[in-house]
Design a protein around this nucleic acid. Structure first.
Lengths: 159, 159
DNA sequence: CACACATAGTTGTCGTATCAACTCGTCACC
DNA sequence: GGTGACGAGTTGATACGACAACTATGTGTG
């Protein structure tokens, strides 16, 4: 609230830079572990977990897009790649009238279990066991405020 | 600290998802403002600010790469695009022996000033004026801990 | 039944990020 | 003074994400 131009103090600027840098370090460390230990990208993991949580492990493209807050074409492209890796199957629905569905393939289910464990362990080691309870509370309350302020819905990646 | 597998509690998982979502909302809002109000992408802005802060507004590709923690080829590609927009010039150094340098072009300098103001105002409105002082302190202390834990150097984008 | 219209999904294009290969100049050493 | 290693920079291949155009499958109304 210094002035009317929205300028920042040097301290503010440094805080912002530290914070974005810390976020980036954390995210890339988690991604790196997923990639090197399971051969799964963050995007793939997001899709796998979303499907895994769904009833019958089946969803429509649009459901995945809404859950992850992705563009539907991004989902389609991603599914094409994952289908070629035999992680998911595009099925002729049957259930919901006549639309197509996407299901976890056996290999996808196996990978999901493996990656979920790696992901959880990574989060604990590089985040939850590093931050103090007070820091976690502050981060969480800020997150909630930010989200409710934006009003938006979806959930996104990083199960 | 539940067990030896690194599993997370449901609360932890929700906290993590809220937090990554909040980060994403904040970052995309700032990026969106930069893009729509100045026609500058986050990557372009990072390069502009890095050059602007440098002595003589001139750096080598490698300096930019280290400062932003980018791959040098990413910098080269980015500079090619920005050069075609007349935001930067590749100069025949002169100073440092015979290597090439990168300088802010006049249009780049103008844009930097404009974008810096927009960026600062955006940060104030969507971040500093939203978070409480206590939250900011906690976020900052966590960031510092995270960075020193990683030991890493560079500074990255988002001036 | 036909027509328009909405919804779901795919495809193509472009800009961007990563990786590896390549060029070119500098320097050390024989 | 050649030659080989190294550092700096560029380029090309490939993958990914955003956006828009297109296809195909409902749904509604005359």
């Amino acid at each position: 609230m210094a002035d009317t131009t929205g300028e920042l103090t040097g301290d503010d600027r440094e805080l912002w830079e530290r914070w974005t840098r810390a976020q980036r370090l954390l995210a890339s460390e988690v991604d790196r572990r997923l990639q090197t230990r399971c051969g799964v990208s963050k995007a793939e993991f997001s899709v796998l977990v979303t499907l895994f949580r769904a009833p019958d492990e089946e969803l429509r493209v649009v459901d995945i897009a809404e859950t992850l807050d992705w563009d539907k074409s991004r989902v389609a492209h991603q599914l094409t790649r994952m289908e070629s890796r035999a992680l998911v199957d595009r099925v002729e629905s049957g259930a919901r009238g006549r639309r197509t569905g996407v299901r976890l393939a056996p290999e996808g289910r196996r990978l999901t279990a493996e990656a979920t464990a790696v992901h959880a362990r990574a989060l604990r080691e590089v985040f939850f066991d590093v931050a103090s309870p007070a820091q976690l509370r502050a981060i969480d309350s800020w997150s909630s405020a930010m989200i409710s302020r934006a009003g938006a819905p979806a959930r996104d990646d990083d199960a």
